[in-house]
Design a protein around this nucleic acid. Structure first.
Lengths: 215, 215
DNA sequence: ATATTATCAAACAGTGTCTGTAATATACTA
DNA sequence: TAGTATATTACAGACACTGTTTGATAATAT
């Protein structure tokens, strides 16, 4: 039998991983992310270079550790929001487009941790992190919709598979976040939420006023 | 004056680049893309390894050459389609969702060249190509909308900046293509077009039947 | 014919992987 | 509770490959 399945982590592993994480975070504050070498990280962390590869695939993988941590916190908060708030529309006479709270939480989260999220966006060699975030988002949506369908199976998803819906949403979301960061976050989280909600729920037709057969 | 601005390429360059391109294409057919090394490519192409880096940044950059070539052909065809066909909606009583022709051309193009497009999707180290394709798509949309506004400024783009719209669209599109390829293209280009058109133009509300304040 | 420019081999720091060996945590036993 | 056996981890050293730079050489354009 394996002694440590998910029980406790070996103290050595805890120390090594912790040292590597803090070393990277320190270096990020000192110099450009792309200019940080594995050797530099392991040297500062007082860890053999080969040991690095026992725990992480590459530099991105180590950085991903930080994302996982802060994302888990927000994912927890999001999972406690009832369905109604996700699907609620604001065309209820209470005024124009109001930001959708769950979506707002996502954009606020990114805004609050922009010092981390800007890294994979501006780096040339960190696109795998973006891909990973997109994947996590996709899976969360699939899970959400499947839950929704079991709990409250109102007319939903007639024309498109769940996976299509999720890929569309997550792709658009990640792309918008990338755009937002590249624009130095000139828009507020509320503005981005409202725009995204409008384009995603209402579609290009409602949002942009495109007319059938417009010439 | 520089002798060769866009005039003629040095014959040596032409030969070198051509050799490298065919060498890569040959190797792709023989073994896994990720397992192909630069040394292997240059060796087969009879080119010094250092010479590779005079023309390309990395393996992806060389592969991108192939994409650029086939994408240019399709971009030309797309640019000749009148605005009306892009924005046309099929809620004109002629039946249910019909595939939007320009969008259909895009998905058919990818379907026709799937042996190339599946590479960056299934490879672990080619996400920069996906990013590049997304960027090209974004720029094309911005250009298109700006053109449209000049030629025929009907009520358009009230609530969101062009760049937001373009990022949303291109992100969703690339993500859907990625999903489609990963699903081994079980859906036809027509089906994907119809689904994408529905979700993008009509929005999640129209497409999925989400109701305001649904519980 | 001559100035450009591309190519090349060699060398370098860094990456990612794989050894065998030493260190040390954990689990079991008494 | 302590002591030992077992399983894991950390490590240095070696390896092929990457991406970059150098100066010398050869091909090309004008």
């Amino acid at each position: 039998m394996q002694p440590n399945q998910k029980h406790k982590l070996d103290r050595r592993v805890q120390r090594t991983v912790q040292s590597l994480r803090t070393a990277l975070l320190e270096l990020i504050k000192e110099k450009n992310y792309d200019d940080i070498s594995i050797e530099e990280i392991t040297e500062r962390a007082n860890v053999g270079r080969a040991t690095f590869y026992l725990h992480f695939k590459d530099k991105e993988d180590l950085l991903l550790e930080e994302f996982t941590e802060i994302m888990d916190v927000r994912a927890q908060a999001l999972s406690e929001i009832p369905f109604s708030e996700w699907l609620a529309n604001s065309d209820d006479g209470s005024g124009e487009n109001k930001p959708l709270r769950p979506l707002l939480l996502v954009f606020q989260h990114i805004h609050d941790h922009s010092e981390l999220y800007y890294l994979p966006v501006q780096s040339a060699n960190a696109s795998k992190i973006v891909e990973r975030i997109r994947k996590v988002t996709t899976e969360a949506i699939v899970k959400f919709v499947e839950n929704k369908m079991q709990t409250d199976p109102i007319p939903l998803l007639f024309e498109v598979p769940i996976e299509f819906f999720a890929a569309f949403f997550s792709g658009a979301l990640v792309s918008i976040v990338s755009w937002w960061i590249k624009e130095d976050m000139r828009h507020t989280p509320e503005e981005v939420t409202t725009m995204f909600r409008s384009l995603f729920f209402g579609g290009a037709q409602d949002t942009l006023g495109l007319q059938p057969g417009a010439k």
